[in-house]
C-alpha cells in the first residue's frame, strides 16, 4: 500500500484544489493509498515509523526539500522505497535531481516505480542525501586519524553526496550518490592585494568515506540550509543506504 504524507503547510486552504488534482491523478494511475497529513499533533518521524510497522509498501512525501530531507533521515536503512511529489513552496532541488521536477512527472514516476538505491551521508545519527555545510572558521577536519585539514582564511566547508546545484563546483568531481564516497569541498575567499580588493575563490576537494569534524568555536553544521547539528561529529557514507523512486531524467 502507498502511504502519502502531506507536509503541514499543505493544510492551508489554498492547496485544496492542488491536492485534489494530485489525488485524482494517483487514483487514475491505480496508486491510491492512505493519506497522512502532518500537523501540530502529528510529526513525520512517528507517522513513517507507524506506517512502516503497519506494512506500508511505499512511502511518498508531498511537499518540498524540507520534508524530503526529514523523510530520508527516517527511511535510511529501511528497504521500503521513498517517493516524492514536489509542491512549489520552498526549494524542490532534491526532487529535481531525482528526475521528478513537476507534480505530473512525479505521479508518472511513481507509476513507473524505477527504484535506485542511493548512498546517504550519516552525520552522527542524522542521515541525508544531498549536502551539509559549515564555516571554515575554527573547523578542524580529521580523516581516519591519518591527516587533518585546516583552512587559513574565511570560507565554507561543504560535505556533498548529491550536488543540488552544479554551478561553481569543480568539474573533476562527480558528486554522484551511487559512487560510494562523498566529496569534501572547501571553498575559500582571499583578498588580492591592490587598490581594488577583489575576492578570489580557492577550491579544495577530497573524495572520502569517513571523517571527523570539530569546531573550536562551537559552530554547528547546517543541513539543507535549515537544520543545525552540533559538533563534534563523525561523518560517514552509508552505501546504498536509501531506496528512492527516481525519474528517467535524474541527474546522476
Amino acid at each position: 500500500m502507498h502511504v502519502y504524507i502531506y507536509d503541514s503547510f499543505l493544510n492551508q486552504k489554498k492547496y485544496n484544489s492542488l491536492l485534489s488534482k494530485i489525488e485524482i491523478r494517483i487514483t487514475d494511475l491505480g496508486l491510491n493509498g492512505k493519506i497522512a497529513r502532518l500537523g501540530l499533533m502529528k510529526n513525520i518521524h512517528q507517522t513513517i515509523e507507524n506506517e512502516v510497522k503497519r506494512g506500508a509498501k511505499t512511502i511518498v512525501v508531498v511537499g518540498n526539500d524540507h520534508i524530503v530531507n526529514e523523510a530520508i533521515n527516517i527511511m535510511a536503512g529501511k528497504r521500503i522505497p521513498l517517493g516524492v511529489i514536489p509542491v512549489d513552496e520552498g526549494p524542490n532541488l532534491i526532487s529535481k535531481n531525482l528526475g521528478v521536477g513537476s507534480i505530473e512527472k512525479a505521479c508518472d514516476t511513481l507509476s513507473a516505480r524505477r527504484i535506485e538505491k542511493l548512498d546517504v551521508i550519516a552525520i552522527n545519527n542524522y542521515c541525508l542525501l544531498s549536502e551539509a555545510s559549515i564555516t571554515t572558521d575554527g573547523t578542524v577536519v580529521e580523516i581516519d586519524q591519518n591527516y587533518s585539514i585546516e583552512a587559513n582564511v574565511a570560507g565554507e566547508i561543504r560535505i556533498i553526496n548529491m550536488a543540488l546545484k552544479k554551478e561553481g563546483l569543480p568539474e573533476c568531481a562527480s558528486f554522484n550518490p551511487q559512487d560510494g564516497v562523498f566529496e569534501l569541498l572547501i571553498e575559500t575567499k582571499q583578498k588580492n592585494k591592490g587598490f581594488l580588493l577583489k575576492l578570489k575563490n580557492g577550491q579544495s576537494i577530497f573524495p572520502l568515506k569517513h571523517l571527523n569534524l570539530s569546531n573550536l568555536k562551537n559552530y554547528p553544521i547546517v543541513v539543507g540550509g535549515i537544520k543545525e547539528l552540533p559538533l563534534p561529529a563523525e561523518v560517514r557514507i552509508i552505501e546504498r543506504g536509501v531506496s528512492m523512486i527516481v525519474g528517467k531524467d535524474r541527474m546522476f
Partner: peptide, 27 residues
C-alpha cells in the same frame, strides 16, 4: 585528467596522505 584530490590555496593538510588518483597541491 580526472583529478581526484585538490588541495587548494589557503588550505593546510597535515599527516600521512595516501591516494590512488591524480593530486593537485596549490596550498
Amino acid at each position: 585528467r580526472e583529478v581526484e584530490t585538490i588541495i587548494g590555496p589557503s588550505v593546510k593538510v597535515k599527516g600521512e596522505f595516501n591516494g590512488n588518483g591524480n593530486i593537485i597541491v596549490e596550498g
